[in-house]
Design a protein around this nucleic acid. Structure first.
Length: 595
RNA sequence: GGCCCGGUAGUUCAGCUGGUUAGAAUGCCAGCCUGUCACGCUGGAGGUCAGGGGUUCGAGCCCCCUCCGGGUCGCCA
């Protein structure tokens, strides 16, 4: 039988006890972390969210019935323990334990909750696979590592609220039940009972609402907002995720960037005690792509891409010339001192890995002391080989990897190869943080399948002033007032200055191939609103989950979300999503048509 | 939708070229133990080898299908 609290009050958290409490009577409440029963002496690690304190049951000090009850304590029992905090004698101190210099000598205790043997190990160095951890998430969350992650997450959210409030931002909520916006990610739909056949959508972001708040005059808005996207999951992507969402009026790009640099500096200082040098590094999109093959480059290591298209434009190697003639390029990565580090087998494996990104192959050139050795040397003249080596700053002992294709494939494959090489060669110092802005994104992206332009960021993004005239004549060349913040090669946030005139917004929709009617049907309320006095405005949204993941040193955002979903977007603990009753479907006027 | 990796006691894993009754560690249960802290010692229980089908004298192991988990490409305005 579990016992009741019966008026007992907790006096302290386990791991917060210290020198000041020695000799005092304390009441602790927590879970049984470990039990060491020596017969007439029982040690128990009592765990709460702060850590573990050893509590000692001594048969020579306790009434028999209390000691006998102590013998029944098992893992994960919930206990209330009353006793005296004592300093351990020097030879009893456990230096590996935060509270290892103390113990509570128990005088009385209650078993508040019994526990069956847990199906997973609740240790910090758990090797339990994630499937089990997620099925028993409530147990997994007892682990101090998970508690640290969630407390870190709380701290980040708290700093965001504090900092942005100090900067004059107002926290305002926006609806969860809203209108579907088919441009972009798939929406999660919610059927309406009172409007048969009509659906709400869960927000992919509060984008349109925060823009409306700007024209309503709230000037500076922030929200820690849940967002939903019905797309496939990744290690850093969940179907529901959280943004720190911001919007500001009367600002340009540098204003948004400046206020956010202040936030990031504050965050790194308070969370990790790291001083971030401001202003942060900035790269334009085209520079990021040409140097790193990525719009979210990890610049903690070099291995930059080198364009050798000019040199091999006319050579005997068809793979190279065809790529250049077709409007693509030939680029390479020079791995300094790598000539001896890659066996043929490893090179083959690298070649296989770039095929994921549609590269047809991976050419290589190893600068051996006896001369360059490569997969294509016989097709090139000595001058061409020398020119390539010079362009890539190659020296004896280096190895160069080449991809020739259209630019998108070259960038994707060499960008990925760059990361893979850094991983294999362990070029990334652990616990280093590298923040940078990527700016000047293209406004529009051509979609081959649909045969039209899509907004790279979203359709409300303001073009660069100098490019506005090209919106009709050369849409693909228009740059956007958009910026991403990148941390260690992960995009942790992005934003833009928005279009604030309905006239420019209509031109944007035209460039996207929307008819006027279609644009009004989808975004009419926004365009209508823009007619009534809209300030220039812009903002940014952070992916809170990714940000916390990186700060916590986790490798998956699942480790910083209390109850995450797995790859097929289900929850192993609740078994959501689930079929529902026929009655519920009838009320919603929904008939299932399953194959 | 594609590709890759994985699924064996409660848990983490081993299991050889297909060959006797599927092992280890840990956890669990019982007994002993007053300074343990990964307590120790002794003993014990514990298995739908993810599921289904096939090949074979014989399948945890080989083949096919399905399910489940992870990574990734596509996708993610």
């Amino acid at each position: 039988m579990s016992e009741l609290l019966g008026g007992w009050k907790r006096t302290q958290y386990c791991a917060l006890l210290g020198e000041a409490d020695v000799g005092r009577e304390v009441v602790l409440m927590g879970w049984t972390n470990a039990r060491r029963d020596l017969g007439a002496l029982i040690f128990i690690g009592l765990r709460d969210r702060t850590g573990v304190m050893q509590v000692t049951f001594d048969s020579s000090e306790l009434p028999a019935e209390i000691f006998e009850k102590a013998q029944t304590i098992r893992s994960e029992y919930v206990l209330a323990v009353k006793g005296m905090l004592a300093r351990r004698t020097p030879e009893m101190v456990n230096a590996r334990m935060q509270t290892g210099a103390y113990e509570v000598r128990v005088q009385d205790f209650k078993i508040l909750g019994k526990a069956e043997t847990p199906p997973i190990e609740i240790g910090d160095d758990t090797k339990t696979n994630e499937q089990m951890r997620l099925k028993y998430r409530y147990l997994d969350l007892r682990r101090l590592a998970m508690q640290r992650n969630l407390m870190l997450r709380h701290k980040v959210a708290h700093i965001a609220r504090t900092y942005f409030a100090e900067q004059g931002f107002l926290e305002i909520e926006t609806p969860m039940l809203t209108k579907s916006t088919p441009e972009g990610a798939r929406d999660y739909l919610v059927p309406s009972r009172v409007h048969p056949g009509a659906f709400y959508a869960l927000p992919q972001s509060p984008q349109q609402f925060k823009q409306l708040l700007m024209l309503s005059g709230y000037d500076r808005y922030m929200q820690i907002a849940r967002c939903f996207r019905d797309e496939d999951l990744r290690a850093d992507r969940q179907p529901e995720f959280t943004q720190i969402d911001l919007e500001m009026s009367f600002v340009e790009e540098d204003d948004v960037i400046a206020v956010n640099e202040g936030f990031l500096a504050r965050l790194f200082k308070e969370v990790l005690d790291i001083d971030v040098a401001l202003p942060l590094k900035r790269l334009t999109y085209s520079e990021a792509m040409s140097r790193y093959g990525s719009d979210k480059p990890d610049t903690r290591f070099d291995l930059e891409l080198v364009d050798i298209s000019g040199i091999v434009r006319e050579c005997g190697f068809k793979v190279f010339t065809a790529a250049v003639e077709g409007g693509g390029s030939v680029r390479c990565i020079n791995v300094k001192g790598g000539a001896e580090k890659f066996s043929r087998r490893e090179i083959d494996a690298l070649a296989e890995s770039v095929k994921t990104y549609k590269a047809k192959g991976l050419a290589w050139m190893s600068l051996k002391p006896e001369g360059p050795q490569s997969s294509f040397a016989k097709f090139l003249s000595e001058e061409q080989i020398n020119a390539i080596t010079a362009r890539a700053k190659g020296e004896t002992g280096d190895i160069l990897f080449f991809v020739a294709d259209k630019n998108s494939v070259v960038f994707a494959s060499l960008g990925a190869l760059r990361l893979e090489l850094a991983r294999r060669l362990e070029l990334i110092q652990p616990n280093t943080f590298d923040l940078l802005w990527v700016t000047d994104f293209p406004l529009l992206e051509w979609d081959e399948e649909e045969g039209r332009f899509f907004a790279m960021h979203h359709p409300f993004t303001h073009p660069k002033d100098a490019d506005i005239d090209k919106l009709e004549s050369d849409p693909g060349a228009v740059h956007a007032k958009a910026y991403d913040i990148v941390l260690n090669g992960t995009e942790i946030g992005g934003g833009s200055i928005r279009i604030h005139s309905s006239e420019l917004q209509e031109r944007m929709f035209t460039a996207l191939g929307f008819s006027k009617e279609e644009a009004w049907r989808r975004f009419g309320f926004l365009m209508e609103a823009f007619k009534y006095g809209t300030p220039p405005h812009g903002g940014l949204a952070y992916g809170l989950d990714r940000l916390v993941m990186l700060l916590a040193g986790a490798t998956s955002i699942r480790d910083v979300i209390a109850f995450p979903k797995v790859q097929n977007a289900s929850c192993p603990m609740t078994d959501a999503p689930d079929p529902v009753d026929e009655k519920q479907l009838r009320e919603l006027h929904i008939k299932l048509d399953l194959d």
